[in-house]
Design a protein around this nucleic acid. Structure first.
Length: 757
DNA sequence: TGCACCGATGTTTTT
DNA sequence: CATCGGTGCA
């Protein structure tokens, strides 16, 4: 049982065995910090600590899930009782339990960034502010950062400095927007992302009983990626750990890349000042990468002034040098990377999933998608517009949200006239004004539309009543039905499905597929809930879950595909072969972040993160001209290329370019000399191209594979024999005789069957 | 009210 | 370039 500890090196072991008191683990990239966290928790549990008393906060849900699995591997099933997840998901859970204590109902819904920004925009409009000056996105991000620093309107009002700064920006009404935004969220029974942390702080500081309850509950607290916590998160951790002081934080200041989200690197730099008698552990041996990679990364991070002392080293092989390739255009860069991956696969027997393409901005993915597709290399794009942010998905979710929480204003506004049912903006505005005056939710105004004396015509009143009725009808299902049944009902009765079904454009077919994929997801959720916990998979639980999942959290590991993602998303991941693309001034480092030392250091840390994802090979590329905002612009090589110690790099000239002997030291000079105008038209994307999405990867999986007589297994019904197949395309049904449950007819696109024989 | 078209506008990174 | 919001017409 205890031999799991043999897998640790000396410093890892020390960090693992130290269980009590405040401690910090400063862990270099690839030094096994996840391993330490995992074993530490397992160790605590073997020592007899109840998993219910352990709180472990991770950066992504995926990290939490994987860690849980690994802990289960050591200590067994018990691990599922750990409190483990992201800050946002764990405290959403707690807030739901304690909601009444801060005046919320426990079925509050969560606004994502889009909802929040829309609300800010309506507030700006309602207050008659000039939207040229009050840019809603800026206002929203200001609200967000104030919240993350726990600056409420009241505190704002006491700070001359803050007031003055808004005056200077000629938007002294900012505070009015802020106040109204908060009121509206509260009245809508809604929390935004930042509220999940802010309200937790509020809860803990206002209610000593609640604080004591959770202090006693969480006897051991562990925080991963501590360098990326913001002030709000910092205070929560501080409050909760105050009693037992069994707080273990793990992080790497060199990988702090989220300051734009309020992350405060000082949290990790000052940890030793914040707690008494802190045990400090350093993990400096890297097990991930070759010597070349580790050294090259070190040579980069050395350029930063602001950092903790730490020397990352490795005993791994020397490995190959980092290849740096210059290309003419972004299109050429795409083709270069695709063929390079193709060759490397052949040469080294790599799989697709051994490769990742990392870029600074999501918009860059396009060129690589095109070229990989042409070469028939399977790939998957992470991030960007995530699945749950797609319009059709958000529409369905809005119905569900409104059913669960009638007050949800943004959900209401989103769907009151979608699909179009003849309720126009003018009528909706009247409802909103009325709701403000009477201080009730818009939904309640709509519900009592016939008793009101609003100037809305009879026809439209009836349409509003019909809408309300359909929501009320769905509400009746809440108690009886699980998330899947309700979602299915909503998709049908709302008319969303019909709408896209009858329009036969590529776009709508895609939307249908996404909606079906959502149904798959809900079914999946219900099944796992039934399996993992006592809960029955209600729609409330699903909505809570869905608001906080990200693209990365989804399981796609078994698929052999090249990954494409931003460097931010890649944190914590590792790949044998890494392509870092678009290494150009104003792109990476981003033009927004080159005006101060701090900003530039964060970009440099980002580059460090990118380099340290690699196990074996790194390929860096940059281009001379790139399409940005639809225009060709000239670029210069990133300063970061110059910063890598020359010992660790190879400068390559691609075959497609002129054979020039481009020596490293005159890259910059050369570029200033030959600013090449490159006027070749951008290659067109084939017009019959449909963006590959997740829906198409799951649906119709069995069209060609399943035949009568197959033995299959189903998540709920277990094993069964396929008796008959009927229908085609999306509507293929199988009649299956299950050992448990007898004969069922299942739509193949929903029933996730595994073929056994 | 709904649809078709037009011009303005914007891209950093995300829970 | 691509999306979005606004405008004008049926």
């Amino acid at each position: 049982m205890n031999n799991y500890l043999n897998n640790l090196n000396e410093s890892q072991l020390k960090a693992t065995l130290q269980t009590d008191g405040p401690m910090i683990v400063i862990a270099g990239a690839g030094s096994g910090k996840t391993r330490v966290l995992t074993y530490k928790i397992a160790h605590l549990m073997t020592k007899g600590v109840d998993p219910f008393n352990i709180l472990a906060l991770t950066f992504t849900n995926k990290a939490a899930r994987e860690m849980k699995e690994r802990i289960s591997g050591i200590v067994g099933e018990e691990a599922k009782n750990l409190w483990m997840g992201t800050f946002h998901s764990v405290f959403a859970k707690i807030l739901r339990i304690e909601a009444e204590k801060i005046g919320y109902s426990s079925n509050f819904t969560i606004y994502d960034t889009e909802d929040s920004q829309k609300l800010v925009l309506s507030v700006i409009k309602e207050l008659n502010l000039d939207k040229e000056i009050y840019k809603y996105k800026n206002i929203y991000s200001r609200i967000s950062s104030l919240k993350n620093s726990l600056i409420t309107p009241k505190i704002y009002g006491q700070s001359d400095e803050l007031i003055e700064s808004d005056k200077l920006a000629k938007r002294s009404s900012f505070i009015n927007v802020y106040v109204e935004y908060i009121n509206r969220c509260f009245k809508a029974g809604v929390m935004d992302f930042d509220d999940l942390l802010l309200k937790t702080n509020e809860l803990l500081s206002k209610s000593p009983n609640v604080l004591a309850k959770y202090q006693n509950l969480f006897k051991y607290i562990l925080v991963d990626e501590y360098q990326d916590t913001n002030h709000s998160q910092y205070l929560i951790v501080k409050a909760l750990s105050d009693k037992f002081q069994n707080i273990c934080v793990v992080g790497d200041d060199a990988q702090s890349i989220y300051s734009f989200r309020g992350a405060n690197i000082k949290n990790i730099l000052n940890f030793q000042r914040d707690y008494h008698e802190v045990n400090v552990f350093r993990l400096e041996q890297n097990y991930r990468s070759t010597k070349n990679i580790v050294n090259a990364a070190n040579s980069i991070i050395e350029k930063n002034e602001n950092k903790l002392d730490k020397v990352v080293w490795t005993e791994n092989e020397t490995g190959s040098k980092i290849n740096i390739t210059r290309l003419l255009t972004d299109g050429e860069e795409g083709r270069f990377v695709a063929s390079s991956i193709f060759e490397s696969k052949m040469r080294n027997q790599y799989n697709n999933k051994d490769f990742v393409i990392l870029y600074r901005t999501n918009a860059q993915s396009r060129a690589f998608e095109d070229s990989l597709r042409k070469k028939n290399i399977p790939y998957r794009v992470y991030g960007g517009l995530s699945f749950y942010q797609r319009k059709e998905i958000k529409d369905v979710l809005a119905y569900l949200r409104l059913i669960v929480n009638n007050s949800d204003e943004e959900a209401f506004k989103r769907i009151i006239n979608f699909p179009a049912r003849g309720i126009g903006q003018t009528s909706i505005d009247k409802l909103i004004i009325e709701s403000k005056q009477r201080k009730i939710s818009i939904y309640d105004v709509a519900r009592n539309i016939n008793e009101s004396n609003l100037s809305i015509g009879l026809k439209i009143r009836n349409k509003i009543s019909d809408f309300v009725l359909s929501i009320e009808k769905a509400k009746l299902m809440l108690k009886e039905s699980n998330a899947f049944e309700i979602t299915e009902e909503v998709i049908k009765s709302s008319g969303i499905y019909k709408l896209y079904k009858k329009e036969e454009s590529l776009e709508s077919i895609n939307r249908i597929q996404n909606i079906e994929e959502l149904l798959n997801g809900v079914q999946d959720f219900v099944d796992t809930q039934l399996y993992n916990s006592e809960s029955k998979g209600t729609i409330e639980e699903f909505l809570q879950d869905v608001a906080l999942v990200t693209d990365l959290d989804q399981d796609h590991e078994n698929q052999d595909k090249v990954s494409l993602m931003t460097i931010h998303l890649a944190k914590g991941l590792e790949f044998p072969c890494v392509y870092i693309v678009g290494l150009e001034e104003n792109l990476f480092p981003s033009a927004m972040n080159i005006n101060s030392r701090d900003e530039l250091e964060e970009e440099r840390r980002l580059f460090y993160v990118a380099l340290t994802r690699a196990q074996k090979e790194i390929n860096i590329s940059y281009v001379i001209t790139r399409y940005r905002w639809g225009k060709l612009i000239d670029s210069e090589p990133s300063r970061f290329i110059d910063e890598i110690d020359e010992k660790y790099i190879n400068i390559l000239t691609p075959i497609t370019s002129k054979k020039e002997n481009l020596s490293f030291n005159n890259i910059n000079r050369r570029f200033n000399r030959n600013k090449i105008r490159y006027n070749k038209p951008k290659p067109r994307i084939p017009s019959n191209y449909v963006k590959v999405n997740r829906a198409s990867s799951k649906i119709n999986l069995f069209d060609d594979n399943l035949v009568t007589g197959n033995i299959v297994s189903h998540v709920r019904f277990g094993k069964g024999e396929v008796l008959k197949l009927e229908g085609k395309g999306n509507d293929i049904r199988a009649e299956i005789n299950f050992e448990k449950g007898g004969v069922k007819k299942l739509l193949l696109r929903f029933a996730k069957l595994k073929i056994i024989s």
